[in-house]
Design a protein around this nucleic acid. Structure first.
Lengths: 340, 340
DNA sequence: AATGTTGCTGTCAGCGTTGACGACAGCGTT
DNA sequence: AACGCTGTCGTCAACGCTGACAGCAACATT
């Protein structure tokens, strides 16, 4: 079926090893034989069997990406960053959707680790269900985490001996920028639409929200925050309720762009004009944030760069698993649009 | 480093072959030895080396997905359909982004075909740049196409001897539903915001648009269509121009949801209320179609189902490459929301 | 007693490639 | 003439696994 090295070797009247050398561009080979081999390769349409190569070299040049759902545009963008970087370095990417489920994640990890991939990039799961700590039969392959919480990183560090690598963006700073922007716009009563999970990414936003308000001597209270799942329908209802309960609010800071959209729907329902009656800031800067009406002011996370950094770190780590890689905290950025 | 079968065999005091049999669940094995082996496997944490297995069985249980850009939510959803189905059948998915570039596509195909994947699922490229016909050194592995044009399918069929498999959705029907819906709502002057590529998917929409208008005795003209790239900014400008040139229009039928969003922006700019002054229908039903204000009426393409059918077809085809697989044309559906 | 039959297990070669090492011709050096 | 060096190429044994086939008890059948 498929052409093997042996056939190329016979056709070019050289040894298999010589063909191997030509293919891999190693060793010293005379011009004439190299040409003969090259000619045989193109003529026969030979392509090396990567499985066989991986078997002997112990490297598959594939990496895995564990993610809740690639349909989430945020994750999709990160995956693009990973993918492009991986391709540059000769790696293929296998994406496994876990639906944020611990068992799925473990299953995927097991499947991938069967010498299929050389390393793994993992988003931390957002759900509250903790991983059973005894289920540490997770295989020990080079791993890079994205946006992991300090706590989960701590448990991980305890479980494995090798140093853990985590790349993340400066959520706290981004959240500060968002709230400071609202304050600068003159808003004095600012509510928050927050996620449900006791997630570090939520905690950072909360802290930034409280910090900025406190620094400016503005009112803040736990009751000014509503917690919910990041679903549009829930967000609309929750935002409506929050605005009705706190009529003094002239601005909402939202956990992400989906919640911000929900808030926009709520404003429409309540007849509140955006941004004059109620300003709205989102988070993430997903693709459609710029496309909605009015365009959403939001905090941009460098999604592709996140993926790129993760891929680069993983490549380093695969080359030298023990290496300690220190990564920069990626900058977040406020994108001011029509909703504020 | 990693545990091999030999070590398991030694630990359980059986032959390697017996371990292999236990792992693969084949052959008849006495209860006691099976237990011994299983015990050794779990204790040692053995996991089979998929590369080695693939080398001998000639099957990698990986499939490739060639797509322009996974960040496009449409493609992302399709990929989920593929992925979930693939997982059910024990396959992994490698996604390769081609950016709709012929060279990239070829490169990816070459890389993947090096015995890395057992088969490939391909979206047809949307760009007009034709593939150089002599570049048919594309490897001959089982392939399933999604949404391919009859023309490209014809050239493909000529190039390869094996029957080609293509799965697609009933675009024409969906487009009819959309335009008929507008007509039923009483609109008599309906414009169209169309894509640029002389793509079969565009042709089907155009044909449906003209057909329905003609059947209802409504005015139609080539000048009622504007062609452009599916970018939000371009769409807004083009829609504005179209509406200014044809003030009689009370409805717009759009090639996809991005263009529909652009039309919504144009209406906002022109002070036209949606849907009272101008109704808008999109196409695809991407995730945010339901989230914008007002929610977008659009034609839903069964994206996951598209992926699922493609994966199933590919699995059939990999089992029997010569088999002729006939696939149903997937049903499209009109989702009526607030924009009409 | 000779001959299947069934149930279980082992032996061996080979999948396509590369790493380690060996060989040998041609050249310059002493 | 003996030596070493360089450039070029080949030999061989793996990598971890599975397919084909053989072996060998134990039991049932003639």
């Amino acid at each position: 079926m498929s052409i093997t090295m042996r056939e190329v070797a016979e056709h070019a009247k050289v040894s298999i090893k010589t063909v191997s050398r030509v293919v891999n561009g190693e060793g010293e080979i005379s011009h004439s034989t190299r040409q003969r081999v090259q000619h045989a390769i193109t003529q026969l349409g030979y392509r090396p069997n990567l499985m066989a190569r991986a078997l002997v070299t112990q490297r598959s040049y594939m990496i895995g990406f564990l993610v809740a759902d690639i349909c989430n545009p945020f994750f999709a963008e990160v995956s693009r960053g990973i993918q492009d970087t991986a391709k540059e370095h000769g790696y293929h990417l296998i994406i496994a959707n876990t639906d944020d489920d611990g068992d799925e994640e473990l299953a995927a990890l097991n499947a991938l680790s069967a010498r299929l991939v050389d390393g793994v990039i993992k988003f931390n799961r957002q759900t509250t269900t903790p991983q059973p700590p005894d289920q540490q039969n997770a295989p020990d392959i080079p791993t890079v985490y994205i946006n992991s919480t300090p706590e989960s990183l701590a448990t991980l560090a305890a479980a494995t001996q090798s140093p853990i690598t985590n790349v993340s963006a400066d959520i706290y700073k981004g959240a500060r920028l968002a709230v400071e922007h609202l304050v600068a716009k003159g808003h004095r009563h600012i509510g928050m639409l927050a996620g449900l999970a006791p997630d570090v990414n939520l905690m950072r936003r909360r802290r930034a929200y409280f910090d900025v308000l406190r620094e400016h001597g503005l009112p803040f209270d736990e009751s000014h925050i509503v917690h919910l799942l990041p679903r549009l329908s829930d967000a609309q209802a929750a935002a409506k309720q929050l605005l009705l309960a706190n009529p003094q609010f002239t601005a909402l800071f939202c956990y992400n762009d989906v919640l911000a959209l929900g808030a926009m729907h709520a404003c429409a329902e309540l007849g509140r004009k955006i941004p004059s009656d109620c300003a709205i800031v989102g988070f993430d800067d997903v693709e459609y944030a710029a496309a909605v009406l009015p365009p959403l002011t939001t905090v941009r996370i460098p999604k592709r760069e996140l993926g790129r950094q993760a891929a680069l770190a993983l490549i380093q780590k695969m080359a030298n698993p023990a290496a300690k890689i220190n990564l920069p905290l990626l900058k977040t950025e406020l994108i001011v649009r029509g909703s504020t």
